[in-house]
């Protein structure tokens, strides 16, 4: 009796599609893993809490280090308020030789409409990705108090 051999052939288009998906997945995974090697921290917030009097500001120092704990220079760090209200002098900064950026923040003046509330800011590294934008992201809470 003649042995029957099974032949399973993928359609060519499907094969190409799967290869593309695999390559994209590898690149994506690469950026995800790469992102986890960075360490982004707020090393100081001064003063904390800050008074919501429409004048007072606080200074945040944010630091970026790589997987070996070395400071990372030249990365663009972007920051914005996600909860609460206030303004930064500059929302996008580049890390210096110490891997640091300095941010000046002023909370909105407390009013009868918007009482003083703590402000949550999202800080992320726009430069740690190679293929896809998978930024190292942290959230930081700035304490805000009534005048």
């Amino acid at each position: 009796m003649k042995e029957r051999r099974l032949h399973f052939r993928l359609p060519k288009k499907l094969l190409v599609f799967l290869i593309i998906v695999a390559v994209v997945a590898v690149f994506l995974l690469f950026d995800v893993i790469r992102m986890t090697t960075f360490d982004l921290t707020v090393v100081s917030t001064d003063p904390n809490p800050v008074v919501a009097d429409g004048k007072s500001t606080c200074t945040l120092v944010v630091e970026l280090r790589d997987g070996r704990g070395e400071p990372v220079e030249g990365h663009n760090i972007f920051v914005f308020v996600t909860e609460g209200g206030g303004n930064f002098t500059q929302q996008r900064n580049t890390t210096d030789e110490n891997g640091q950026i300095v941010l000046n923040f002023r909370p909105l003046r407390a009013t009868r409409y918007q009482p003083a509330t703590d402000v949550t800011v999202k800080i992320y590294d726009e430069s740690n990705s190679i293929f896809f934008l998978i930024p190292k992201t942290i959230y930081h809470v700035i304490e805000v108090v009534e005048p």
Binding site: G54, G85, N87, L108, R109, T111, R112, Y113, Q114
Partner: peptide, 10 residues
């Protein structure tokens, strides 16, 4: 003034 300032600040 309070409302005006709030809008301006934000």
């Amino acid at each position: 003034r309070e409302a005006n300032s709030a809008m301006i600040e934000e």
